Simulated scan of single mutants.
Amino acid sequence: MDSNTPLLRVTAFSAAALLVLTACGDNGDDDTDVDEGNGADVETDETEDDAEAGDDAEAGDDGDAEAGEGDGEELTVALFGEEPYSWLDEESGEPTGATIAVAEEIFGERMGYDLNIVEEPEWGNLIPGLAAGQWDVVSAGMSINEERCAEAAFGEPELVYTTAFLVEEGNSEGLETFEDLEGSDLDVIALSGAVESGWMDEMDIDHDTVDNAQDGIDFVEGGAADVFALTAASLEAMAGDIDGLEVTESFEHELSVGAHTFRLEDEEMVEEFNENLDELMDSGEYLDLVSEFGFSEDQMPPSGLTAQELCEEDPEELADEYLED
């Protein structure tokens, strides 16, 4: 792509602006250590009987006082501003989205952590920030693939994604899949570090990248780009009602499945998270949580699919096995 195109001039401006925003939104040391004086761990002068009575009252009628691993410790969770997965509500400023609902249920309600949810404005910073200890978990529906598995650990599969294009209303080029972009002179963009960009790299499709989803939408709306490739659910949620724009029919390029993301060394946390996730999936409570954000049974992962398979096995073979219908 010509470096003098309007897109790249806008991209350069956006990158500079995002650098300023990132600096302003820096979590600093983002030290998530909990004060050692946490009241849950402090012995009191209560008699043993009083303490047991208090435990029973907190546990409920069955007197089961078993707590989650968190036990009131703070857990910092990073979100990325992309509907319908995770974002900050414009009016309240509160975190919301399908993955946030799951994080609040599992980490907060079931594992006993106090959640500190922060926004990372650049997709490409999510895993590096995780490795650097800026946050403990990423709740952004990140797709599991071999490259990412070398840098982070993933919980078990949660949501299956399809892809779509954001184009000018009418879709004059008749775009349906990535194959339609091969050899074209269209200005195409994707999210930096996203699977769509990786797929286009593999197919030698010329494209540029942006750091956040809203920039991609703005570039197409403003005429600086012809096509923005992203998950269909995100484009429908964020741009489906914009006059003059159109979200194409969704398609499956490869098996793309999102999950919560952890540091490689946090094996025990991943294990406990997966146990709770499995309970939610089996009971149907998981679908209840995410359906409020537009997800349905169609987006649930295929039975038997594991994060390990997505990390280690050939994507085309997995697609043949699990997307045969």
Results as ranks from 00 to 15, higher is better:
residue 305 L to D: 02
residue 122 E to C: 15
residue 25 G to T: 15
residue 119 E to W: 06
residue 178 F to I: 04
residue 115 L to I: 04
residue 184 S to C: 03
residue 281 M to T: 11
residue 291 S to G: 09
residue 15 A to L: 06
residue 177 T to G: 12
residue 317 E to G: 10
residue 162 T to F: 09
residue 111 M to F: 12
residue 217 I to V: 11
residue 302 P to R: 07
residue 223 G to H: 00
residue 311 C to N: 07
residue 232 A to Y: 01
residue 109 E to N: 15
residue 237 A to G: 09
residue 277 L to M: 13
residue 103 A to M: 10
residue 155 G to Q: 03
residue 254 E to A: 13
residue 312 E to C: 07
residue 50 D to W: 04
residue 214 Q to F: 00
residue 84 P to S: 05
residue 243 D to P: 12
residue 15 A to I: 08
residue 98 A to D: 03
residue 255 L to G: 02
residue 173 E to H: 15
residue 253 H to Q: 14
residue 272 E to G: 03
residue 16 A to C: 10
residue 150 A to K: 08
residue 63 G to R: 04
residue 89 D to T: 05
residue 300 M to G: 11
residue 316 E to W: 14
residue 256 S to M: 11
residue 187 D to P: 00
residue 172 S to N: 09
residue 290 V to S: 06
residue 63 G to L: 08
residue 285 E to N: 15
residue 157 P to A: 12
residue 37 G to M: 08
residue 8 L to H: 14
residue 49 D to A: 06
residue 155 G to L: 01
residue 310 L to T: 01
residue 264 L to W: 01
residue 201 D to R: 11
residue 314 D to C: 09
residue 210 V to W: 01
residue 76 T to E: 01
residue 36 E to A: 11
residue 114 D to R: 12
residue 264 L to I: 00
residue 84 P to D: 03
residue 141 G to R: 03
residue 197 S to V: 11
residue 222 G to A: 14
residue 185 D to P: 13
residue 164 A to Q: 01
residue 56 D to S: 08
residue 94 E to G: 04
residue 237 A to K: 06
residue 314 D to I: 08
residue 7 L to D: 07
residue 57 A to D: 08
residue 74 E to Y: 08
residue 202 E to V: 07
residue 259 A to Y: 09
residue 142 M to E: 04
residue 74 E to G: 04
residue 26 D to A: 15
residue 50 D to Y: 00
residue 174 G to K: 13
residue 138 V to N: 03
residue 301 P to C: 11
residue 175 L to T: 07
residue 105 E to G: 10
residue 153 A to I: 09
residue 79 L to K: 05
residue 60 G to Y: 02
residue 297 E to A: 05
residue 222 G to V: 10
residue 86 S to R: 07
residue 48 E to W: 03
residue 136 D to W: 03
residue 112 G to H: 11
residue 219 F to P: 04
residue 45 D to F: 13
residue 173 E to I: 11
residue 156 E to V: 00
residue 269 M to E: 05
residue 280 L to A: 12
residue 246 E to A: 00
residue 220 V to N: 12
residue 163 T to K: 00
residue 63 G to D: 13
residue 125 N to H: 05
residue 51 A to F: 12
residue 248 T to C: 13
residue 141 G to Q: 01
residue 247 V to Y: 15
residue 95 P to A: 03
residue 204 D to K: 00
residue 92 S to Q: 04
residue 178 F to S: 02
residue 214 Q to L: 09
residue 241 D to A: 07
residue 170 G to D: 12
residue 25 G to N: 15
residue 287 L to D: 07
residue 316 E to R: 14
residue 156 E to H: 10
residue 131 A to T: 02
residue 321 E to V: 09
residue 109 E to I: 09
residue 220 V to W: 06
residue 306 T to Y: 11
residue 152 A to S: 05
residue 256 S to V: 09
residue 37 G to E: 15
residue 47 T to H: 10
residue 123 W to S: 12
residue 46 E to Q: 15
